[in-house]
C-alpha cells in the first residue's frame, strides 16, 4: 500500500510548463505577422469617419453655411453602425462635430449630411435619388448599392476594404472629392456594370 501513497508527480510544474509553452509558441509564431488588422466593420466605420476630411459638401465654403457639425445618419443598428457610433462618441475636442443620428422616420433624412445604408437597409434604396438631390452623401456596403443610385460603396476585396465611387453622381450632386482620396479609390463606371 505504501507504493500507492508515495506515487505522485510534479503536477504544478507540468501545468506551468504547458502554459509557458503556449505563450512562447504564440509569441514566436507571430513574429512574422506584425501587420495590424482590424474587424471589417471597424474599418468601414473608419472610412465613414474620414470621408468628412476628404470630401467637401456643396454648401462648404459658400459663406452661407459655416459647417461646424456633420450628421451621420443610420437607419438600422447592425455591426458597422455600432462601430460608427462608437467611433463618433470617442471623438473629443474635434474641430468638426460629428453626430451619430439614428433615423426612425424617412422625413428625418432631410437633416442628414451623410447617410449610411447597411446590408439590411435595401428597402431604403428608393430614397437614394432624393438624397442625392438634397446634397446628402450616400454610402453603403450592399453589393448593388451603386447600381441602385448610391454614391460610395464600401466593398470587401480579399482581406481589405475598397472604396468605389460613382464620381459622376457625386459631382452632379455638388460634392468635391479631394485628389488624395481620388488616387486611392476605384471609380464606378455605369456602362461597365
Amino acid at each position: 500500500m505504501t507504493v500507492l501513497i508515495s506515487w505522485t508527480r510534479p503536477k504544478n510544474l507540468k501545468c506551468a510548463w504547458m502554459i509557458l509553452s503556449c505563450l512562447i509558441f504564440s509569441l514566436v509564431s507571430n513574429l512574422s505577422h506584425a501587420q495590424a488588422s482590424f474587424d471589417e466593420e471597424d474599418i468601414k466605420a473608419a472610412f465613414l469617419y474620414n470621408f468628412a476630411d476628404f470630401i467637401s459638401w456643396p454648401y462648404d465654403g459658400s459663406g452661407s453655411v459655416n459647417r461646424s457639425s456633420l450628421n451621420y445618419c443610420v437607419l438600422s443598428e447592425a455591426t458597422v453602425q455600432r462601430s460608427l457610433r462608437s467611433l463618433l462618441t470617442q471623438e473629443e475636442n474635434a474641430t468638426l462635430q460629428r453626430n451619430y443620428v439614428f433615423v426612425s422616420d424617412r422625413t428625418e433624412l432631410e437633416d442628414c449630411d451623410l447617410v449610411f445604408l447597411g446590408e439590411g437597409d435595401s428597402s431604403y434604396f428608393d430614397e437614394l435619388a432624393a438624397l442625392a438631390a438634397s446634397e446628402v452623401l450616400t454610402v453603403g456596403d450592399h453589393s448593388e448599392f451603386l447600381a441602385e443610385g448610391g454614391m460610395i460603396q464600401l466593398s470587401r476585396e480579399q482581406d481589405r476594404i475598397q472604396v468605389i465611387i460613382n464620381l459622376d453622381l457625386v459631382n452632379q450632386s455638388g460634392f468635391q472629392v479631394s485628389s488624395q482620396l481620388l488616387r486611392l479609390v476605384n471609380i464606378y463606371e455605369l456602362n461597365a456594370q
Binding site: 482590424f38 474599418i43 473608419a46 481589405r160 476594404i161
Partner: peptide, 8 residues
Amino acid sequence: LFEANIRE
C-alpha cells in the same frame, strides 16, 4: 486605412 487588413 486602404492598406489595413481585415481580421478573420
